[in-house]
């Protein structure tokens, strides 16, 4: 464990908690893509099946349980409890165009052709593109609530910190996982446009609005 990975995990946890609290306190999921949240729930489910087979540490196990619990709670709030506030007209990204290619790729490019490893690979590839429905929804509505931009900032920051963690681990431990690194680079690149808007607008107190 190194500082980049720890702050990355805490940034990820912060994003998940910010979103859950935003929906719970405002009793509304306006502007939130339910499709992205379903994809994230799929990412955690397929990645953390090793909860049943391997114990790594209390930190590892508790974080996985928190991530899975919060992501399913968020999906529940969006599609059940606050369903009336779900903006389905703008959450129209065709997720099958993500899940099918990612599913196929995880069978073709993986470290080991075993069920757990293929599911892990699927979760890595899926996480790289899971935010697309959310970014697409913001481009369609042309704006995002400030709290939503903070959620996206921490979510994008977490994988960027993981990239630094992988540089660190390669240099000090000789460890590297090409699949996680390539997917992590793609994932972080997808946030670049948002990061630019976040820094130039939101951090200056303006609302994030895209030229519609």
């Amino acid at each position: 464990m190194n500082i980049f990975r720890l702050t990355g995990d805490l940034s990820h946890l912060a994003a998940i908690i910010i979103l859950l609290l935003k929906i719970w306190k405002s009793r509304s999921c306006a502007g939130i893509s339910g499709k992205s949240q379903i994809l994230f729930a799929m990412v955690f489910t397929t990645r953390y099946l090793d909860l049943l087979t391997a114990y790594i540490s209390l930190y590892n196990t508790s974080m996985k349980i928190i991530y899975i619990g919060c992501s399913y709670a968020t999906v529940y709030l969006i599609y059940a409890k606050f369903k009336a506030t779900y903006d389905g007209n703008h959450d129209t990204f065709r997720v099958e165009f993500l899940v099918v290619p990612v599913g196929g790729l995880s069978f073709l490019v993986n470290h080991d052709f075993s069920p757990l490893e293929i599911l892990w690979t699927f979760s890595i590839y899926l996480e790289a593109v899971a935010i697309l429905p959310q970014l697409f929804m913001i481009s369609k509505t042309g704006e995002a609530e400030t709290i939503t931009t903070h959620y996206l900032f921490f979510l994008g920051l977490y994988r960027a910190l993981y990239l630094i963690n992988w540089v660190w681990r390669f240099y000090f431990e000789g460890f590297f996982d090409m699949i996680a690194i390539v997917a992590g680079v793609v994932q972080t690149i997808l946030y670049c446009d948002f990061f630019y808007l976040y820094v130039t607008k939101v951090l200056k107190g303006k609302k994030l609005s895209l030229p519609a």
Partner: peptide, 10 residues
Amino acid sequence: DTETTEKDEL
């Protein structure tokens, strides 16, 4: 290609 070390990252 790394051997499938135990996945200790989240």
